[in-house]
Design a protein around this nucleic acid. Structure first.
Lengths: 214, 214
DNA sequence: TGAATCGACTTTGTATGCAGACGATACATC
DNA sequence: GATGTATCGTCTGCATACAAAGTCGATTCA
């Protein structure tokens, strides 16, 4: 499947948002993006359309587009859905996970290796969870979950946030992975649920804090 | 909130797909669409980007874009997700439904009033289910569910299909609505699940049939 | 007869240019 | 001093235009 310049740009912008190059609320000027990626505004506009459809950016017609700032309600809802979908998927996936999947998960346990090849904490976290679900092929699920995660990608670009979240997140990943390796599906799913709840707590608190100062 | 020409076109194309004007597998030629909607190809391309992100169309870079043909696996997965999300939503919604919501649902019970103001069976069905969820405000859920339904919108544009599905579908809607009116959340949700399973059966069978002749 | 190759036509992908909308700043008015 | 209004500059939205890629059919050769 050939790839389109436009789609590459959409991915690049998404990664830049994850990395915090374009922070939450930042306006995205078409002309600047065009210069940055060495194209005209047309493919940029199309990339922005894709991102808008995924909910990563907010478009104010005629006025401008901005990195979307999810509020605490939205974040809570996103995790409400993930808690419904992901444990089910994990339970189905675990019996079919192979050594290669466990290696991949192992390699992505630690979420804060920002310097490791320029991989953002968000991308690292994504890799870990992707590895857990590698046992089954559920493209529609995968796409929805990925989209939900992407919506809050901008929130992960915050060193201060990871300073407190890194250790517990690593421990939770470790526990989930160990349970998965041992084939304890029941335990792994309940650990995953708890992990998601913790993430929800941390992120809604972060968002609520920001909402206060406005 | 002002509306963009591009977004109006995206909606219009979606509706045309629901109505069967652009059947499943049909190529969507940018130039023709541009003439049809009286604009240049630029806003068309952007509308197509939106539809592609929603999974309504498949883009083959450089070659063309086509109305996507969901296979039976995808359809099964779509309903797998809906069965997880919608009952939960319905249970939360029922206690907060008002007379106006029931009227709206009542008006959309029958899915096949194609001549009624040009509303497609798909749109009618959508209205019914939207009315059921009117009690709560869960924008992220709403968006996902709408997106999942839209993915299979093209399958609804088939008179032969409705010839057999119309009566049972109406009866199921009736039963769900009655249970909702009576405040019987538990019964309503289990009826909804059964309704979804029946729809899944009908649609996967339809898709499997098409897959056979290829 | 069947397969492979070439070429014309169609369609897509992107750049450039222009008109109009939006927002900010400065000014006038209460 | 605060509020409303005009004006300017910036940015967006879209049309036109051109270049590249792909498709399909005709033609040729085995």
């Amino acid at each position: 499947m050939k790839k389109l310049r436009t789609d590459e740009i959409a991915d690049a912008i998404k990664i830049d948002i994850e990395k915090g190059i374009y922070p939450i609320g930042e306006p995205l000027i078409q002309e600047s993006l065009a210069r940055r990626y060495g194209v005209s505004r047309i493919p940029i506009r199309e990339a922005l359309k894709t991102l808008a459809a995924e909910g990563v950016i907010d478009v104010h017609p005629g006025a401008g587009t901005f990195v979307s700032t999810p509020n605490s309600d939205e974040i809570a809802e996103i995790f409400e859905i993930r808690v419904q979908l992901e444990p089910h998927l994990l339970r189905l996936s675990i019996p079919r996970l192979g050594p290669r999947d466990f290696e991949a998960a192992e390699a992505a346990l630690e979420p804060t290796l920002k310097l490791n090849g320029g991989v953002s904490p968000f991308a690292q976290d994504q890799r870990f969870h992707d590895a857990l679900f590698a046992g089954i092929d559920r493209p529609v699920h995968a796409r929805i979950i990925r989209s939900l995660r992407t919506k809050i990608a901008g929130l992960y670009a915050d060193d201060l946030f990871w300073a407190t979240r890194s250790a517990p997140c690593l421990a939770e990943h470790r526990a989930i992975l160990d349970a998965a390796k041992a084939g304890k599906e029941r335990e792994a799913t309940s650990l995953l649920i708890r992990h998601l709840m913790h993430a929800r707590e941390a992120l809604t608190a972060k968002a609520a804090l920001r909402e206060q100062f406005r």
